[in-house]
Write a protein that binds this DNA or RNA. Structure first.
Length: 156
DNA sequence: GCCAACGTTGGC
DNA sequence: GCCAACGTTGGC
């Protein structure tokens, strides 16, 4: 039996890597995640074909700008071994990698940004537990329910 | 194992 | 650029 598709939200700073960048390259290793909870979601929760809401953070109008899909199982993030990378982790070794990632494939760009501001106005429909609008939440990768995924895209 | 210091995230 | 929130580190 095919497992039910899961859904995720992934944040990226557009000046570092934007939805347009993803559209250009098609598929991208989601490197640089250095938070254990976010890593665990990628390593233990994600499966090929899962749906991803692509979110622009730390920008003039933060919000959801496109969709993508999980395109690979989790595998070690190469940047942890690279001394020249800003993501280099001296405690990680090839034998015992610490950080994992998945590949993300472009699906589509939304016709408009569904802004954080707008998302907050729909807090009731999304539920209190929706991680994006919980106070102080800084996770860059987290699960979204199928209902939340559908609802957010229905705002487009 | 506690917790102060420090670093990062990300909205504003 | 500010700063609240909060995860991580490391001394003890």
């Amino acid at each position: 039996m095919t497992p039910r598709r899961r859904y995720w939200l992934m944040k990226s700073e557009p000046q570092a890597f934007s939805i347009d960048d993803l559209q250009r390259v098609g598929t991208e290793p989601w490197n640089g995640v250095r938070n254990y909870q976010a890593r665990n979601f990628m390593r233990d929760g994600m499966r090929v074909g899962d749906g991803v809401l692509f979110y622009h953070s730390n920008t003039r109008i933060p919000g959801i700008v496109g969709t993508a899909t999980v395109a690979s199982p989790a595998y070690p993030d190469d940047t942890q071994f690279d001394r020249k990378s800003p993501y280099y982790d001296p405690k990680a070794t090839r034998e015992e990698p610490r950080w994992q990632l998945v590949d993300i494939a472009f699906e589509r760009k939304l016709s408009r940004t569904i802004s954080l501001d707008e998302i907050k106005q729909h807090a009731d429909e999304l539920g209190e537990e929706f991680a994006l609008i919980r106070r102080g939440n800084r996770l860059s990768v987290f699960p979204v329910s199928a209902a939340q995924y559908r609802y957010l895209l229905s705002l487009e």
